[in-house]
Structure formats: C-alpha cells, structure tokens
Amino acid sequence: MNWRKIFKVIHRDLGYICFGLVIIYSVSGIAVNHFDEWNPNYIINKTEKNIILPETLNDRELIILSILDQLAIKDSVLSSFQPSQNILQIFLKGKSLTVNFKDSEVQIEEVKNRTGIKEMNSLHLNVPKKLWTYVADLFALSLIILGITGLFIAPGNSGLMKRGKWFVIAGILLPIIFLLIYQ
C-alpha cells in the first residue's frame, strides 16, 4: 500500500467518525456566531397582563394563589421572591411571573429550550467539561489530520502541487486578509 492509499483510508474512516461532530460544531458555530442577533439556546416569550390584586398584600401565598387563579395557571410554584416593596417574583417550571403591585400588572416570562441547538451549543462550548474536553481535543486533532490527509488524496492535475496549491493558498490568505483589515 502506498502512502496516498494510506492517506485515503485515514481520511475516509476518520471522516466517517467525525461526521456527527462536524455537524454539531458547525451548526452550533453558526448559532453562537450570531449571539448579538438572537438567543441561540432559548426562546423567551414575554407577555404582560393586568390583574386585580387582593385588598391586603400581607399574605404572599394568598397573592400568589389569586394571581395564578386569574391567569389560569395550574403549574406548581417552585419559589417566590420580593426584590422590592412593589415587585414580587413567582417562579414556576419554565415560567416566571413578575408582579408589579403599583401598576397591578404581571409580566409572564416563558422560557423554552431550542431543543437540539442548545445541546449542540453545550457540547461546542464545552459546558460538560470533564471527559468531553478530551473528546473535543481528539476531534480537533482529527480535523487537523483530515485537513492534512485531504491535501494528498487527489493525484495529477487536481493534486496539491498543481491546481490544489492555489486553493490552499486562498484558504490561508483569507483569514490573513481579514486580520489585516480588522486589526
């Protein structure tokens, strides 16, 4: 077996293994690249509603029950907190209510996961840490090997020394040009 064949086999089989991770890292890459324009992990919906508050605001449990009843919310309450005299926060699973006593208004914030993308972002940004750090390192190393072996697969006119070299030079120049422009 000559070296070109060895490179071809490495490139092919490593490519199969890396396929899933390439998709995860690239989809997440696009998602987190646009942090300023959207939230890549959550869909947050905020709605405001007017409510009628109980006459006395001393009994927090009573206030919560009354508000949940008016809003027809059946979820159980996780906890509540009063950050100031006029504000009460009520936390439910996947939802939180901010009650404004002054304006008799409640803001309902619903948080939903962007299922799939959130998990991809978690792996891409190495949230799990521990063993995943090494899996990610191995993946990065595999990408280097894929890049190098890929250079030497095509023979003849499409090979690295002929047509291929111009593509390689273009690929190297692209980030350098951007660095020169933006730095």
Binding site: N41, I44, L78, S79, F91, K93, S96, V111, N113, L125
Partner: peptide
C-alpha cells in the same frame, strides 16, 4: 454557564 431554566431553584 448557568442555565435559564434554573430560575426559581
């Protein structure tokens, strides 16, 4: 990275 769904916990 703290998750948003942790609110209230």
């Amino acid at each position: 990275i703290f998750p948003m769904e942790a609110k209230g916990q």
